[in-house]
Design a protein around this nucleic acid. Sequence first.
DNA 1: TATTGTTATACTCTATAACTATA
DNA 2: TATAGTTATAGAGTATAACAATA
Lengths: 146, 146
Amino acid sequence: MEPHDALGYLVKHAHLRLTALTDAALAPLGIDSKDFGVLRVLVGRAPMSQQEAAAKLGVDRTTMVALIDAFEARGAVTRRPDPNDRRRNAIELTERGLALYRKADAAYVAAEGRFLAPLDPAVATQLRQALRTVLAPPEGRDRDER
Amino acid sequence: MEPHDALGYLVKHAHLRLTALTDAALAPLGIDSKDFGVLRVLVGRAPMSQQEAAAKLGVDRTTMVALIDAFEARGAVTRRPDPNDRRRNAIELTERGLALYRKADAAYVAAEGRFLAPLDPAVATQLRQALRTVLAPPEGRDRDER
DNA sequence: TATTGTTATACTCTATAACTATA
DNA sequence: TATAGTTATAGAGTATAACAATA
């Protein structure tokens, strides 16, 4: 009935729906899905510069400032000058930040599950894999996460 | 390498990639993917009000004004007062607008094909179907299949 | 009083330019 | 001279509020 078969329409609205679900799930923790992306980039990794983190997220370094500001203000991330290059800030998750990430991850996974609920589990896995394949670098390189 | 691939990341970047591809493909025609959505809503349909079209696109009625302005300026869409309710504009594709749609659809389909190129055709079909299922209304309502 | 289209305004998000401190 | 972080500014995009015409 509708002309909504366009993949562009489907992908756009899937994005809107999923973002709404995950934002709502993360809101009680005081973060949104964009903030969660920052936590994911930082967790389990050696301290990195703001610019490195920004590159992994695909955002501008100026955008990164406010994101880190918010996490630093709540004690989830530390900024300190990189001893090897004092122009850089070494940013790192604190214990509190790690705890926040764990709670956020649980909330995120639950929201993702609700989004995928109409699908057979095997089909959900195929969906994820198909998106990975489409976004994979042209040649068989190792993909960097964001 | 990562703890897990966040579906939010995959869907967001799939959207970005696909939008970039389709925008580039449509640019020679003087429209972008958002404009193409307007053409898709209008094609092969009885004239409708701006508000109806806006609802189908999921945008505000105020946003619709500029979209229709642009198409009207190039003679692709006509605005005329609805005889039955003169508050409404009956908007309709012109012959020129239909020709524009046909060219745009060809360009769009080609771009979509490039986006899906890394996937086996059967997998691409499954991807489209999975997205349709996820976005389908909550209960088994009168939804268009296929 | 409610609705459609319109305009003006505000808000969100993000990028660009400019400044500082380091290198 | 070049780079990382910061700040201020600007731009795109879209929503909200107010208004005129019509119901």
